[in-house]
Computed example of a mutant assay.
Amino acid sequence: MADRTHQGDGEGIKTFPFPAELAVGGVGMRIGTMGTETWTVDVPLHRFHRIDFHVVMLFTEGPVRHVIDFTEYEAAAGDLLWIRPGQVHRFSPTSEYRGTVLSMQPGFLPRATVEATGLYRYDLPPLLHPSPPQLAALRAALDQLCREYEDTATLPLSLHTAVLRHTLTAFLLRLAHLAASSAEASREQADTTFTLFRDAVEQGFATNHSVSAYADALGYSRRTLVRAVRAATGETPKGFIDKRVVLEAKRLLAHTDTPIGRVGAAVGFPDAANFSKFFHLHTGVTPAAFRAELR
């Protein structure tokens, strides 16, 4: 990551753009070894920050504790973490990061490939646990990608870039299959009721917090919706909605200097006191205290 940074709004969490100037040949991707200074140049490793590009880390040692969108994940050797553009994350001050790291600029791959590989499936878990055969195949694909990335002598830049795109696509197709076949993702995809509810919440959480309203709009009984959401997530529909509202509020509090009352209004609480009460109930801290902890 480069030393080139900008603020999201005011003094909010810094966003780090893709470091194109550090990429070999200036292409829209990088791949290399974690644990060296060049892969995290001037990034505040132990503070929350955002990236506007994809990062995939394949660990050879563990455990590694890494926070993504305010949730801590623990990765073991052989696990992968997939961080997507716009997500807030923070490195652990106590973990040793060892393995291979791949970063990719949005727009490096064509739209058809982006859709086929699920690059913007934010609903999929960032922590992935491949089986031994899957891990072997992913490592082989990464090794091949690394060789192609470093080989700038045998092809002109245009062909070199084309080969990189194809090789990267092969790796991402394997990665996307792993993500989509995880237990959580499989349950979500298999249950049409939950999938429709999840999509409706994503569209309407800023204004609609009512389980009954979602059930009516989707044409399900409240009982059917409760059963489907609990089977997919272990949560109630109300808990699922509240969790999404809290995440959005955290993002706004972390990314921007928007007044707390306006943050509340943006997630469906016109009354600032009710928003503070809701946020404190679900996080244990007030919105002001949460924001202060990040500064």
Rank of each mutant, 00 (worst) to 15 (best):
D143Y: 10
P130M: 06
E115M: 05
R147P: 04
L128Q: 11
L128W: 02
A140H: 02
R139F: 01
L135C: 00
V114C: 07
P126A: 11
P126L: 09
E115W: 04
G107E: 01
P126D: 11
Q105A: 12
E148A: 13
A136P: 03
P132Y: 11
G107C: 04
L109C: 08
T113H: 05
F108C: 01
G107N: 03
R121Y: 12
A136I: 09
T113A: 14
L127I: 12
L127D: 05
A141W: 10
A140V: 02
G107D: 02
T113F: 04
C146P: 01
L119C: 07
Q144A: 15
L119N: 03
A116M: 02
P132D: 08
Y122H: 14
D143P: 03
R139E: 14
E115V: 04
G107T: 08
L124Q: 14
A136W: 00
L124I: 06
A112P: 04
L109Q: 01
D123V: 08
R139A: 00
Y120D: 11
R139S: 04
R121N: 15
C146D: 14
M104W: 03
P106Q: 12
P110C: 11
P110R: 10
Q144V: 08
A140I: 05
R111P: 05
Y149D: 04
P132A: 05
E148K: 09
Q134H: 11
D143S: 10
F108M: 05
E148F: 14
P133V: 01
Y149Q: 03
L138C: 08
A141N: 12
Y120E: 13
P106M: 12
R111L: 10
E150I: 04
Y122L: 13
A140W: 05
D123Y: 01
A141S: 15
Y122S: 02
H129W: 04
A141Y: 10
Y149H: 11
